[in-house]
């Protein structure tokens, strides 16, 4: 673009900041602060959000988690008292256990089901759009809707259990939402129904990004299809798997609406999750300190997932 190499007098040198070409002769340098003034003004909402809400809010919560705030936030520091109390509360332990069970199973199943569906969809099938539409539509629905539908389907009086019993298998029991021991699996079924379509879509995009020649080469070498998938395609899709993993994982920590709609945390506290614990302590139990401590633990859980990923993804290179 030789046309642009000589600058007309109308454009000030500072104006074209995004371009790499810097004019050699610099006349009068305008005040740095007022450079790009409109852009700076336009970015005020972003800067405020990033600094005040995201950074400030997080720091605020972490700081107040070391206080004994009850009804109102107060700055009376009590050290790690809130955390000690938190980890001595059975309800918190139940919710952590639930999160772990739900999280691990949901990760495994979403990845496996999502990948299998994507692999099936990638076989140059007919009606691909129809199938995609069917697999993905639950993702458009809210967790509330998802939870309520599955609450109804898993209803032991009218739902799956009663249908199977009416077919003749009278001792059949499947009542996850009313059984403390397996309630979290009931939630898992609903969550998988809602979320696997997204994983399928991401995986399918990844599969489509793989060079056709890889497949041809594998065929020439006589490698069976499942081995090609397992040992060639999946390792090649590592970035897709990693991003999917991060997306699923950050969704898992947040799980809240689904539990509220499907079981309200019940029976008893059997299906409680950290997000619900936080909400209840902040807005019902009027025990803000506990809520802050619990939410800080959630933050820590996310950090454990995100930091290694960010390090691996962006650590080597300078820019993200």
């Amino acid at each position: 673009m030789t046309v642009f190499s000589t600058k007309p007098p109308g454009t000030s040198p500072s104006a074209v900041t995004s371009s790499t070409a810097r004019p050699k002769t610099r006349a009068r340098r305008p005040n740095r602060l007022f450079r790009n003034l409109s852009a700076k003004i336009a970015s005020i909402p972003m800067v405020l959000t990033a600094v005040v809400i995201f950074l400030g809010g997080t720091v605020w919560t972490v700081v107040y988690s070391f206080t004994n705030s009850k009804l109102l936030p107060r700055l009376t520091f009590v050290g790690f008292d809130q955390y000690e109390r938190l980890w001595a509360t059975p309800r918190w332990l139940v919710s952590i256990q639930n999160l772990a069970t739900y999280g691990i199973l949901s990760l495994i199943f979403s990845l496996v089901i999502g990948f299998l569906l994507a692999a099936l969809m990638d076989q140059k099938i007919r009606f691909e759009d129809t199938f995609r539409t069917i697999f993905l539509y639950p993702f458009a629905l809210s967790f509330i809707v998802t939870g309520l539908v599955w609450q109804w389907i898993l209803n032991p009086e009218f739902g799956v259990q009663s249908v199977v019993r009416s077919l003749g298998w009278t001792s059949f029991t499947f009542d996850p939402l009313y059984n403390e021991d397996i309630v979290i699996y009931g939630i898992l079924i609903a969550a998988l129904w809602q979320g696997t379509g997204l994983v399928m879509c991401l995986m399918l995009a990844g599969l489509r990004g793989i060079d056709e020649d890889i497949w041809k080469a594998a065929r020439v070498d006589g490698i069976p299809m499942w081995r090609t998938y397992l040992f060639i395609i999946i390792p090649m899709m590592r970035p897709v798997f990693v991003t999917t993993l991060v997306i699923i994982a950050s969704g898992i920590v947040r799980i809240y609406d689904l539990v509220v709609a499907q079981t309200s945390g019940g029976p008893g506290i059997a299906s409680d999750v950290p997000a619900k614990y936080v909400y209840d302590y902040m807005f019902f139990a009027q025990n803000l300190g506990q809520g802050f401590a619990a939410s800080t633990m959630m933050l820590l859980a996310v950090a454990i997932v995100i930091v290694p990923w960010a390090y691996l993804e962006f650590g080597g290179r300078k820019r993200g």
Binding site: T61, R254, V278, F292, S295, M298, L299, V302
Partner: peptide, 12 residues
């Protein structure tokens, strides 16, 4: 910030 759980930021 998009990855921070909302629960951390709602009270502030």
């Amino acid at each position: 910030g998009a990855f921070i759980p909302y629960q951390v930021m709602i009270y502030p």
